[in-house]
Design a protein around this nucleic acid. Structure first.
Length: 303
DNA sequence: GTTGAGCGTT
């Protein structure tokens, strides 16, 4: 029946320590904590299922599984494990709240004069509100402007105002719109796709290192892996310990080193247009894309 | 060295 001592260790592979039990066969949490300061419970590996199981804890008293501690080694639980989990959930819900709230997106700026620079763009758009990112898209070889760019504002009200009107920039009329990618993903990547722990980070620049990406994404939760393909391909994969964190970031545009990167689910091959719209049989991707656009032209978060 | 509707080197 009840043992005089049970074997407790910091870790399954650590040297166990014997902890005294009470006369009724229970073990006081305070007895465990006397040897393992900060302990908040015990767990053990169930020999049948090979899974870890928690030991019942009621008012500071640990109860033997099936009334017999047996000869198992019990592993100490510490509150820091739970705390870490909580931090990750908080980060995930913070992102979700931010998303449900009126969050700004990058806007495409169409019709820019060839000569317009990022500084020009910043100067112009700052008259509407605080600007957090501007880009002018250029030919990689020649450096010539492609005549369009992107802007992102701090406040959603600013964004709304900017979209609503035309803009005279350096002598040409320009339009600001939600980019197609944004419109598409807003509808096609809701909340419950694959629950992957891995995210795809698109539009990376060549100077972003794995360390920098790890440092950046740590704020959302524990990062278990960062992968940057070589040679440079302008994207990266980041894996989190918690799928909730990864999923919460999906669809976001984040700014890393002043560059707007786009987060989507890893493995986009399972997310292509034909899989999303099977009613358009093979070959008609452009038709399917038009359909997708017409469906998601005004996603609820932007009306 | 050109150009003027589009969509960000997945």
């Amino acid at each position: 029946m009840s043992e005089l001592y049970i074997r407790v260790a910091e870790d399954e592979n650590e040297e166990p320590m014997e902890i005294p039990s009470e006369d009724d066969g229970t073990v006081l949490l305070s007895s465990v904590a006397a040897q393992f300061p900060g302990a908040c419970g015990l767990r053990y590996r169930n020999p049948e299922s090979q899974c870890m199981r928690g030991v019942r804890l009621l008012e500071g008293v640990l109860h033997a599984p099936e009334n017999d501690w047996g000869n198992l080694v019990y592993v100490v639980n510490y509150p820091k494990d739970n705390k870490r989990k909580m931090e990750e959930i908080d980060a995930a819900s913070a992102v979700k709240i931010k998303r449900g709230f009126q969050k700004t997106s990058d806007l495409i700026v169409l019709g820019l004069p060839w000569k317009t620079t990022e500084q020009d763009l910043k100067d112009y758009f700052t008259t509407f509100g605080e600007v957090i990112m501007v880009q002018v898209k250029r030919d990689a070889k020649t450096g010539n402007s492609k005549g369009f760019g992107f802007v992102r504002f701090t406040d959603y009200e600013t964004q709304t105002k900017v979209i609503a009107q035309r803009h005279m920039i350096d002598g040409r009329w320009c339009d600001c719109k939600l980019p197609n990618s944004k419109v598409f993903w807003a509808g096609a990547c809701p909340d419950e796709p694959m629950r992957s722990r891995k995210i795809f980070v698109g539009r990376c620049t060549e100077d972003m290192t794995t360390d920098e990406l790890r440092q950046y994404f740590m704020q959302y939760g524990e990062v278990t892996d960062v992968f940057i393909p070589k040679p440079f391909r302008a994207f990266a994969f980041v894996t989190f310990a918690d799928d909730q964190v990864a999923q919460a970031l999906c669809g976001e545009d984040l700014i890393i080193k002043g560059v707007s990167v786009h987060i989507s689910n890893a493995e986009p091959k399972h997310n292509n247009i034909h899989q999303l719209f099977p009613q358009f049989p093979g070959g008609s991707a452009s038709l399917a894309a038009m359909f997708a656009r017409s469906q998601y032209q005004f996603p609820s978060s932007h009306v």
